[in-house]
Design a protein around this nucleic acid. Structure first.
Length: 612
RNA sequence: GGGGGCGUAGCUCAAUUGGUUAGAGCGCUGCCCUGUCACGGCAGAGGUUACGGGUUCGAGCCCCGCCGCUCCCGCCA
């Protein structure tokens, strides 16, 4: 039985036609003498009617047997619904199919959870949804995400093609490069004791493609990182990976702005304004306390270093004397913060090494008229300091003022964390409106090229060692590495890091300086780890740079869902298992022998797999 | 590796804080019903309270362990 139309197609224009629909029994309404069956396919649903006065008794009898999620083919004549029975909730609601033939293509057992009721389905335990993923995907809400993902991937490919990019696939079986994230290893049967690794990203390959003269490369690349999961992190995920030759940072900005403009238009029919705002790393931290700020709401950090430089409050003046800063933020309307909330915020501060968290609750005084600053520290403040706080933080009754006095980065990050925490609470209380349909894109630029590892007493690359320094900062590499800014950029939207990249070093001399003098990596080791790349760069490497966007995160934003599991067809759990296929699982002893692998853990007879 | 939340009928949840036979809505089964679309009505079935110990006269509830899902920190660009 072939369908003539899909289930979201019939309109008044089709009235009179004989049609065949195929799909699942979405719902049945058996009125005794009359039966309505809604047939659903991926496009939508259509009401079919079984009228016994019109049908052979045998056919009507079979219609009575139909149950939810059976697979059927239904043939009949399209007709206008009787007056007053239209269903405005569905696009096919003006017509119905008067059945003349029914074919049961398959029966179905009662589903373990409903797929026809969004309100219930959305609350179903995720464990169950993942075990029966094929049923979860049948739900229109999730099916919609898959379709949108496909649409966006296609739009991206079309865009890149228009821009002259080549889509090039790079190996999944790659070489172990023990930098950054933990890798998945794949034992090599052919040579005992050797391994491939799954790529954390195609970083090296895409740079080598530039040496190969590809000039413009992109790939929707699967990447693998054996790290612990989050709502926005899976063991395997997809990057929109890009690399270009003969370009500067501005070229990347323009390209990505064009791409995202296209994607938002295609996916949501939303015109996003370009170019995007740019924030330096320093400004992002100064104002928002984080390198991926959500700029949809204010509550920005305010600096009080000068005001408290000579304060009698030693916690503040002492921090300044140590080269630190004093910063504060006004959590508008949070004076009523509970003990528990203040404790949580204090824990954040302590996790950054602070001793505690200074705060002021601005509340009505005992007389009900005056405003009182309730705080253990306010007694240390003089009138000038109080006036400065009041004016710069615009303090009013009902506010909660929070302070951090520490080294610059620490102080910013503490308040950045607290700013987001307060925003969440205020959102929950309805005191802060952060529109979900607003997209604040921005570039964060001029990251420090290097970070300092106190434990190992050495510099490390904050992005990766091939990131080019800002040209005018190159002389500082040897004299003041801390001040060197990298030609690194992150694309951020609404507090989510969508992607990042950099212009790469292509001059052997600069690369040598970075490796040997700054990062203090011995030449032999450099050769061992990056030899093939350095070799490639000897033979005419063009200036180049690139970026990678987290495709799953991008889709999660477009689908307005907090978890990338909702935009991945077959995601894994937080512990990295697939509940549907029950993987990872044990393997046959012969497989292990072939791979020259001997286990040091007891292997259970059946899955699930042993504890790591 | 660490911390938090959750686990009771097929699903979503409740169970007066340790007390009789563990309930409700939806779903499911049967019967009735000719304009429903959250159809309606009547009747019914359905429980190892994740699992294993312990405390107690008595445990869904308290304690210990363990498994799973989830969120966060660490980790991860």
């Amino acid at each position: 039985m072939k369908r003539t139309h899909h289930c979201n197609e019939l309109r008044p224009a089709h009235i009179g036609q004989t049609v065949t629909l195929t799909g699942w029994v979405h719902s049945r309404r058996d009125l005794g003498g009359l039966i309505f069956i809604d047939v659903r396919d991926r496009e939508g649903r259509t009401q079919t009617v079984f009228d016994p006065s019109d049908l052979p008794p045998e056919l009507f009898k079979r219609a009575e047997q139909l149950r939810s999620e059976w697979v059927v083919g239904i043939t009949g004549k399209v007709r206008q619904r009787p007056a007053g029975t239209n269903n405005a909730k569905i696009p096919t609601g003006e017509v119905e199919v008067m059945t003349t033939a029914l074919e049961v293509l398959n029966t179905a057992e009662v589903l373990p959870f409903p797929v026809d009721d969004p309100e219930v389905s959305n609350k179903v335990n995720e464990e169950l949804r993942l075990k029966y993923r094929y049923l979860d995907l049948r739900r229109p809400e999730i099916a919609r995400n898959l379709r949108l993902r496909s649409k966006v991937a296609t739009a991206a490919r079309v865009f890149f093609d228009e821009q002259g990019f080549l889509e090039v696939e790079t190996p999944i079986l790659f070489k172990s490069t023990p930098e950054g994230a933990r890798e998945f290893l794949v034992p090599n049967r052919r040579e005992p004791g050797t391994f491939y690794a799954l790529p954390q990203s195609p970083q090296q390959f895409k740079q080598i493609l530039m040496v190969a003269g590809v000039e413009k490369y992109y790939q929707l690349a699967r990447c693998f990182r054996d790290e612990d999961q989050r709502a926005d992190r899976q063991l395997e995920f997809t990057q929109v990976d890009i690399e270009m030759s003969f370009i500067e940072r501005e070229d990347i900005y323009a390209l990505i702005e064009g791409l995202l403009k296209r994607v938002w238009k295609v996916a949501l029919n939303v015109d996003i304004p370009t170019p995007f705002k740019r924030l330096t790393f320093e400004e992002a931290l100064n104002r928002f306390g984080i390198d991926k700020p959500d700029t949809r709401f204010g509550m920005e950090l305010v600096d009080f270093t000068e005001e408290f430089r000579a304060s009698t409050f030693k916690v503040f003046s002492g921090a300044v004397a140590n080269g630190g800063v004093v910063k504060a933020l006004n959590a508008k309307g949070m004076a009523g913060a509970t003990q528990g909330q203040v404790e949580t915020m204090t824990e954040y501060a302590k996790s950054f090494g602070a001793k505690g968290l200074a705060f002021i609750k601005v509340e009505k005084g005992a007389d009900g008229a005056t405003v009182e600053w309730k705080s253990p520290i306010v007694k240390f403040f003089n009138d000038t300091e109080k006036a400065a706080l009041t004016s710069k933080l615009k303090i009013e009754e009902g506010d909660l003022i929070l302070f951090a006095a520490d080294q610059w980065l620490n102080a910013c990050e503490i308040l950045g964390k607290i700013r987001l925490y307060c925003a969440d609470i205020l959102k929950g209380q309805g005191k802060l409106n952060v529109p979900a349909d607003q997209f604040n894109f921005l570039w964060v630029i001029e990251f420090p090229l290097l970070g300092f590892d106190r434990e190992q007493n050495r510099w490390y690359s904050s992005h990766h060692p091939f990131t080019a320094p800002v040209t005018e900062d190159i002389p500082l590499l040897k004299t003041d590495p801390k001040k060197v800014r990298g030609q690194h950029y992150d694309i951020v939207v609404n507090g989510v890091e969508l992607g990042g990249g950099s212009i790469r070093i292509h001059q052997p001399a600069v690369q040598k300086t970075v490796f040997e003098e700054v990062l203090q990596i011995a030449p032999e080791e450099t050769q061992l780890r990056f030899g093939y790349m350095l070799d490639a760069f000897k033979y005419g490497a063009p200036p180049h740079g690139g970026i990678a966007l987290g495709f799953d995160r991008l889709m999660a934003i477009l689908c307005n869902t907090p978890s990338i599991r909702d935009v991945i067809a077959f995601p894994k759990t937080a512990k990295g298992t697939c509940l549907m296929t029950d993987s990872p699982s044990t393997v046959e002893p012969k497989q292990l022998r072939d791979l020259h692998i001997e286990l040091k853990v007891k292997q259970p007879l059946a899955t699930p797999a042993p504890k790591a």
